[in-house]
Design a protein around this nucleic acid. Structure first.
Lengths: 219, 219, 219, 219
DNA sequence: CATGAATGAGGGTTCATTCAT
DNA sequence: GATGAATGAACCCTCATTCAT
């Protein structure tokens, strides 16, 4: 039961509760684990069935193909990855009250995504590994980025540029650098070199400082 | 003949000429193309043989297993990726004459790796795609990094910190940020969003500026 | 309701009304359609269930196996195919009043079976397709033929041979030729080349003439 | 070796020798036997492999799909079935010397096809069973019939009608009846009731007589 | 009586690898 | 050295059948 909660949370879209039968949840769990460990192509449906404690046919009763199983995992997660930008009030909140500076905004974003990656690491690993091979995943990510993130992100940057906080670089460049820096930290921290001794708070703060100094308007 | 030159160049280690028979070169070429396009797991040896114009058995005469074929491609390339740091005189050159500032060093490094990635894009793609699945590739990269890059990189940073050019952050942090920034740019430029309109020189200069402002010693 | 009437008619034996529940009728209808279209082996029970608007399990509540479902369709139909010979008074009717010649008899038989095939074409198609694969169907046909048709047919032929209408060929030969000719026409007309422009009345009359000239006693 | 001769003969087209490796011949033999016995759909490739004494993969090295294996058997055989009509000199031979009457022609045709069916019975069985399910087989048969048989057959009939030997029925009708009669005999003899006591020569002669009386021009 | 989730054996097909030629 | 036929394990997927609800 409890095991399924994180799954339910990860997979639900628009706050609609997802109905996951017991077996279905076990299949998804097993698939996420194995795809993350060995990659999609190298994971066989029979292994997933075995790990899920289910007959192989059961997988195909719920997901017509192995690919569909992958997409059932990946598609809702893309929304969750973009989550901070999805709230309707997002821009307003950034402008009006919540964040008094781009630095605050970045700090909140980083902390938030840090927790997310930490919690759903296997899912992130799946993206990291499979995006290159599945153009449909790539396209979904791009679509979500263009429709839900890019515009809002740009407005935030315009806002802080007008306030004189940010250098007069093109918004695209600032977006790219911001994302590269945050993603670069998170991937290094959790995927590439997870075994290093990390002082996460300090390293995140340093990363933010680096980014802010790099981007701030020259006096 | 000419086709093989870039291959020879890419694969040779320590200036030893690599002896590649005609068939062998064709196999490697075909394998690189297909691994980059479809990924290692999704490429069959029979496809490679067909594209190389060679019998299936011939591949296994030269490489005991499919994996060994992959490693024959990947292993020498790791050295090439690390190339700028491999020269014996590297540190001395950085200190004494060539680069009068960390910014110059970074600029040279970025330009150099930009050309490399551009030239050997399929190889980079293979790393991007396969590192996650093959722990031996990951280990080789880490070994080369630790043995050939880390120490020299650190000395460079110490040097410029002593000269007061760089902030008093831990070297590890500076290395991570520098690499993340450069790799982040190159991957975005060539792999993730190659179809955007890029003004490469300008974008690289901005990236360097961002990085330098982020890392420089505060007045 | 009305849909089921032909089914009821086709499946009832010895004038016993068949009790078909609504679902049962829909299952049979769906099965007949699909077996005729794609063949027994290539039709899955889940497809039948879907087309019948019924759960998969429901099929197996009424018919223990898929094969039993086939036989539930096929067995009563065999009787209907043999229908003209099943009436108790059959021989008497032929001799005494109804048919004054073998030609009349053949003509009546042909017209009758023409209408039957036209009406129950999917069923005929099932026989055409499945008889070869199911020896039990073949045996049932042979049994019905031997028990209900052969003897009566023979007596009809004896009768008209004695009247000097038919050549002195063995009855078996005449039966075979008569059936081959009629079945040959019907299969060509409805199964093999249904798309040709057929003038059915004329072609049947010609077929009968051919058969009669072929079989009549030489002056 | 000797086993393969009939196979080679059956499968060769235009007198080109077919190169059949040992394994390939065994696969074809096994497939023909099993398709004839149990039908295409009910025969598994693993069974074929077992009976052929070959690994299952070997089948797919020679035939990309199971269907292709079927067609490799069926396609050349269609030509063999049509063989009597394929000779270039066919019409001339019929007119000039060989056959002085339609009866002779039919007799020769029947004897010839009788031997063929007897020799290649499993192949005939495959046609009988599979034509209904594979529209491509049906189309191939129709094409061969229209391109190689129909026209020549029609000219033969025109010829003997002009000689006053045949009734003035439409050629199509005569063709249909002739084929129905011959095929009807052969199928009954070899497929439907092979276990009856058949006096083949006598029964064929009677069949021919029936057909000829049925078709001859009335005095 | 009806449902449909679950089963697991078996289906066709692919593939890295071997080896006789 | 080069070939390509042969292998057989493993792959994804389908299906008739069962059974708890």
């Amino acid at each position: 039961m409890n095991d399924e909660q994180w799954l339910q949370e990860l997979l639900k879209i628009n706050d609609e509760e997802v109905k996951l039968s017991d077996k279905q949840a076990k299949i998804l769990e097993a698939a996420i684990e194995m795809f993350a460990e060995k990659g999609y192509a190298a994971t066989s449906t029979s292994e997933i069935a075995k790990r899920a404690g289910v007959a192989e046919g059961t997988i195909f009763r719920h997901y017509k193909t192995k690919k569909e199983l992958l997409m059932a995992i990946v598609t809702p997660t893309i929304m969750k990855i973009a989550a901070p930008f999805l709230a309707k009030e997002f821009v307003k909140e950034v402008f009006e009250s919540q964040y008094s500076s781009y630095e605050d905004f970045i700090r909140a974003l980083m902390n938030n995504r840090y927790e997310f990656v930490k919690k759903y690491l296997p899912m992130i690993r799946i993206f990291w590994q499979e995006t290159a091979f599945h153009s449909d995943i790539k396209e979904q990510i791009q679509t979500v980025f263009m429709e839900n993130i890019y515009g809002k992100f740009k407005r935030v940057i315009d806002h802080f540029q007008q306030k004189g906080e940010l250098a007069d670089l093109p918004a695209n460049t600032i977006i790219r650098m911001t994302i590269t820096t945050i993603v670069g930290f998170l991937l290094t921290r959790f995927i590439l070199l997870p075994n290093l001794q990390w002082d996460d708070e300090q390293e995140m703060e340093r990363t933010i400082q680096m980014l802010m100094h790099g981007l701030k308007k020259e006096g």
